[in-house]
């Protein structure tokens, strides 16, 4: 039992992202309301952003701006250790991924508005019912 706790605590960031991702995925699959599904989608994408951000992190490291890069003379100048700075690349990648997820959410919300204007509802089962009615009416014509 204590082994499991150590494993979970040692890598809590990964556990957190998996839990968040599953919450998002659950909402996307199981929720009936389209906006709830969109929220689930956003949680899902955020979980992956969290995963990327956490892989760049190092213990006791600081932001990747090199100290004394220009003003270092004499004994104040020292060698640069990669371990002193967190890895900026995953964070930079996530700036792009955030833009992508915002854009996706924007497009999806615009679609939800269009659907609402058409069907006056955002509940998926009601929309589906309306569609079946339409199809039956068309076949009877």
């Amino acid at each position: 039992m204590s082994d499991i706790i150590t494993i979970v605590v040692a890598k809590y960031n990964y556990w957190l992202y998996i839990i968040l991702m599953m919450i998002g995925l659950y909402a996307m699959i199981a929720k009936n309301n389209l906006v709830k599904k969109l929220v689930g989608m956003n949680i899902f994408q955020t979980a992956i952003i969290l995963f990327y951000v956490s892989i760049g992190y190092k213990k006791d490291a600081t932001i990747p701006i090199i100290e004394n890069a220009h003003g270092g003379h004499g004994n104040t100048a020292h060698a640069i250790h990669a371990a002193d700075y967190i890895n900026p690349l995953p964070h930079v990648l996530m700036l792009t991924a955030i833009v992508v997820s915002v854009a996706t959410l924007g497009v999806a919300l615009a679609l939800a508005v269009k659907i609402y204007q058409r069907y006056q509802t955002l509940e998926e089962d009601e929309i589906r019912m309306r569609l079946t009615e339409n199809r039956l009416a068309e076949n009877n014509k």
Binding site: L34, F44, T104, L111, I115
Partner: peptide
């Protein structure tokens, strides 16, 4: 009628 709905379903699956 169906375009936005088909597109939104595609969004969900495409994002996954």
């Amino acid at each position: 009628d169906r375009g936005p709905l088909a597109s939104l379903n595609y969004v969900f699956i495409g994002v996954i």
